[in-house]
Design a protein around this nucleic acid. Structure first.
Lengths: 220, 220
DNA sequence: ATATTTTTTTAGATTTGTCTAAAATTATTT
DNA sequence: AAATAATTTTAGACAAATCTAAAAAAATAT
């Protein structure tokens, strides 16, 4: 597999993530995500198209080709394995790992990553609960849904939090919600879209609409 | 401490290493070391001079300033800690770690490196026996000498090997010489500059001039 | 001490990734 | 459907790092 520059990798990764939400990605979306200018995005899109990582017709938005997706999964694999390493071995806290992994992910030595994977015991998810692609780029697609969409009285496991500000982390800590926590939604209130949830046998407590919208769970 | 580009770091590190041997470094030396052209070296020297990392007058060669040396020691610290990690934790072999560490060393997050140091148990030397600078940039300067310079009948510890080809590693393995091995030189032969050495109580064996010149030891 | 060779620097070009400002295209209003 | 607004692309510029070819300086040899 070929090598790509740090800049190219950042674009590829951003497109991959934005693709998840909508089908196609626009110039402005990507410029915003990468804190760059639309003109720079267009320049890079042309380059990635030449490299056959991207389907792109001017003014039409873009999406990764199969090859592009493979490259993206490689980058995400590196990122998430390093996040796991930082949290598990170096005892970085949950909210610190992402930034450091942003740099480490660009060291693209296959043997390094495969040995790291082995050393870590082939973890299936990173500290945010997001799945780690395996050495072949396969990723577990467990239907991740927002807490707001959960069926009443079923149990689901908290797998990720979209916002990662210290404010939300403070609140989650206070409510004793973490990655891996088993949650059961007991009631939903239409008035303010708040909900009552339970952890194990403890008494139910309230989660606001704003918080619920940022919590994602793996449902069975 | 400021941040430097990968390219700047590679120049700084190379100057630091070449300085050890001679006092000052020349344009051609550096171009050769970095596999680049003399013109490129001159360009970079001007830039590093502006940043006050280098003392440089045209045609006069160059050496790092105190600030430049501090930067170099930071890079070397990162490089050697990663080498230790790769060998010790990921089970890379001795001769594979350098190349991978060349990439990892440019991730310059102080907290990452200090936590890595702690995780590894504050190792004093890398897998080649070279000392690892501490978080303040202090480095153990144990008088490292070539095996050829050793006084007869004294014991010294193998600390590094300058050549790291697979050929020399094969030979070292056969002779059971590794980093940390305690060696005692029993005889030196002027005819071919070969020498007889002993490991512990085992019978003495012969080391050729070529091999001896590539083995470095820490003498007391 | 002058000529020749080697080393180093300069001048100008190239590539990558970025930017601003203007033009082109698409989307939205009225 | 024409006017306006928003988005996207193009054109041209710039900084970083590199290169080649030529000029300048230093080292070496005759």
């Amino acid at each position: 597999m070929l090598n790509y520059s740090t800049s190219e990798e950042n674009y590829i990764k951003a497109i991959f993530h934005l693709q998840r939400q909508d089908g196609t990605v626009t110039t402005n979306e990507l410029a915003n995500e990468l804190k760059t200018k639309p003109a720079s995005v267009t320049d890079m899109m042309k380059k990635l198209k030449v490299k056959k990582l991207l389907n792109y017709q001017p003014y039409q938005g873009f999406r990764l080709t199969n090859d592009g997706n493979k490259v993206a999964l490689g980058i995400i694999r590196r990122h998430r394995l390093w996040e796991y390493f930082l949290a598990e071995k170096l005892k970085f806290s949950w909210d610190e790992v992402h930034e450091v992994a942003e740099d480490l992910e660009h060291v693209s030595n296959k043997k390094l990553i495969d040995k790291l994977d082995e050393y870590l015991g082939f973890p299936r998810t990173d500290p945010h609960g997001d799945p780690i692609p395996d050495a072949n780029g396969k990723i577990e697609i467990s239907k991740k849904i927002c807490l707001t969409e959960m069926t009443l009285n079923t149990i689901a496991i908290v797998s990720s939090v979209s916002d990662q500000s210290s404010e939300i982390l403070e609140l989650l800590e206070h409510k004793k919600i973490a990655i891996g926590t088993r949650l059961e939604v007991k009631k939903k209130f239409d008035f303010d879209n708040s909900m009552e949830v339970k952890i194990g046998r403890q008494p139910a407590f309230t989660i606001s609409k704003q918080l619920a919208e940022n919590i994602f769970v793996l449902s069975n």
